[in-house]
Design a protein around this nucleic acid. Structure first.
Length: 276
DNA sequence: TCTAAACCATGATTACCTGG
DNA sequence: CCAGGTAATCATGGTTTAGA
């Protein structure tokens, strides 16, 4: 049966999906009523046209319970548009195999980063990572006349720390950890300057009747190794997404003699800068 | 042997209290 | 209100232990 826009049997042409569960990154369930349009013969591949006008090919797979999901390729769409819980997607169907997708923030406004998304399907993961990294607002880093490094973040929250002698643990400043809810999280995702992401475990350590501290542990060492980072180097963490505990990390290496670089943090929208 | 957790020690900083 | 003393909290890192 030809599916086209003039087919009067198409009752449901569009639908919306709020992203409320954290499994959205693997698949997205389509509304059963919308699927009834296909009379049991849905296409196995669809094209999603994002807000940028670029297209992504996504598999449409059925499950035994009769539900249908965007599956194969969907993850690319999610990553390229930096989709996150709270985003609101509107799908408009052309009656054939194409969907126009609009993406909105919880504020009700269209998501800016999504408008800028470019399709890289089929390219290497590193290209995807690099592109993702570039979608973060770049920090303004300048060397001052007295040899210091002025780091101006476009995000509200950042902190700097020296990579400790015992490199597989690092303290997250207490105030920030509590204020930003990190103390209740199990993991953070760090994006290094190459755009590669690292899942790092968070662990609250009790300090014998003296309160506690939040440590980044498992996974941290791999990130240091991959970036050739050693104890004494300075790392700056920007909290780029509070809900998803995503941080972008910047490195400033110590000089050969072990002299640490002096990094001064500044913020555009003053919230919390923590200097250790 | 390496990584990571658990526990401990210490110095620095911050918060709080009190007397003038 | 302020200065000084004290207690509480925090950051850092060392040691020991466990598990892969």
């Amino acid at each position: 049966m030809a599916r086209n826009s003039t087919n009067p049997s198409w009752r449901v042409r569009s639908f919306f999906k709020p992203l409320v569960h954290d499994d959205f990154s693997r698949h997205l369930c389509l509304p059963p009523l919308f699927m009834e349009n296909f009379n049991g013969r849905p296409p196995c591949k669809c094209t999603l046209r994002g807000p940028s006008g670029e297209s992504w090919t996504v598999g449409l797979e059925g499950r035994e319970d009769g539900k249908f999901f965007f599956r194969k390729g969907w993850q690319n769409f999610v990553e390229d548009h930096l989709l996150e819980i709270g985003n609101f997607l509107v799908f408009k169907y052309d009656g054939d195999t194409k969907f126009d997708v609009k993406i909105y923030n919880p504020t009700g406004c269209e998501k800016e980063e999504a408008v800028a998304a470019k399709n890289t399907t089929g390219n290497l993961a590193s290209i995807r990572n690099r592109k993702k990294s570039m979608l973060y607002k770049p920090a303004d880093v300048k060397e001052t006349s007295d040899g210091h490094i002025a780091f101006r973040s476009k995000y509200k929250t950042c902190f700097k720390a020296t990579v400790p002698k015992i490199p597989y643990r690092m303290t997250v400043p207490k105030k920030l950890a509590v204020a930003k809810g990190l103390i209740e999280k199990e993991r953070v995702r760090l994006t290094d300057p190459n755009g590669k992401t690292w899942k790092v475990k968070l662990r609250v350590e009790e300090i014998k009747s003296r309160g506690n501290r939040l440590l980044m542990t498992e996974g941290l060492l791999k990130c240091w190794h991959a970036n050739n980072i050693s104890p004494g180097d300075t790392a700056v963490f920007e909290l780029v997404n509070e809900k998803r505990s995503e941080m972008k990390i910047h490195f400033f290496r110590a000089e050969a003699g072990g002299k640490r670089p002096t990094v001064v943090l500044e913020l555009d929208a003053s919230d919390s800068v923590v200097e250790n």
